[in-house]
Design a protein around this nucleic acid. Structure first.
Length: 191
DNA sequence: AACCATTACAACCGCACAACT
DNA sequence: GAGTTGTGCGGTTGTAATGGT
């Protein structure tokens, strides 16, 4: 994975570069980003191409400001998940992790009076007083476990009390709950 | 109009990890 | 099993745009 510095251009992308990258993705699909400079002659490293596509050129990316609903959802998901931007972004349709992260750091952290982005996620607080239901096997192999988790989750939501420790095994439960059971609708209503 | 400070967002960097050879 | 490659993630930096003086 040799990408010598100096061989590739840095900084903002030009329209021409965007067009070349779009053409490549149209023809070859996503992936194998490191081939792009070789195939297209684009003076950008694969990593940069991937990022440009994911955060800007991808038609699924929503542009423009964040709505109040999105803000609210992000705040609550951040409260739940901490700085897990990709997870948060995965539940905010049309938004990328980079967008969410930037939006948090420039708007929401100020709005909430959070000092800086090195803030530890609330979720990583060592005081986790919650008994989170047991997980994977229970939750995924039987409806009961899943229901138990959902019920527990709702309880936390109702108490506006979403501080779990991300580094405990129970985190897995939370994330799995999100992945398995919680469509955006569920999350946005729950949170 | 010119300068400086702040804001918002795009992009880069370093690291980790999974897949592949 | 070891090395290489490709990808993803979070933190950080760079820069254009905007606002204030």
């Amino acid at each position: 994975m040799e990408e010598k510095s100096g061989e590739y251009k840095k900084g903002l992308w030009s329209e021409e570069e965007d067009r070349i990258l779009m053409d490549y993705v149209r023809k070859h699909g996503k992936g194998k980003w490191n081939r792009i400079p070789k195939v297209t002659g684009l003076k950008r490293c694969g990593k940069s191409c991937r990022l440009r596509w994911l955060n800007y050129l991808n038609p699924g990316v929503k542009r423009g400001g964040f709505s109040d609903q999105e803000d609210d959802l992000i705040i609550r998901l951040h409260n739940l998940l901490g700085n897990r931007w990709s997870l948060i972004a995965g539940r905010v349709p049309g938004r990328t992790d980079n967008q969410v992260k930037n939006h948090w750091n420039t708007h929401l952290s100020k709005k909430l009076g959070i000092k800086n982005h090195k803030n530890k996620p609330a979720a990583s607080s060592s005081q986790s007083h919650h008994s989170i239901p047991k997980c994977r096997d229970d939750a995924t192999s039987s409806g009961t476990g899943s229901q138990e988790m959902e019920s527990w989750f709702w309880q936390c939501c109702n108490n506006n009390d979403l501080h779990f420790n991300l580094h405990t095994p129970t985190t897995v439960n939370v994330l799995e709950l999100l992945d398995h059971d919680m469509s955006l609708d569920f999350v946005s209503h729950a949170l």
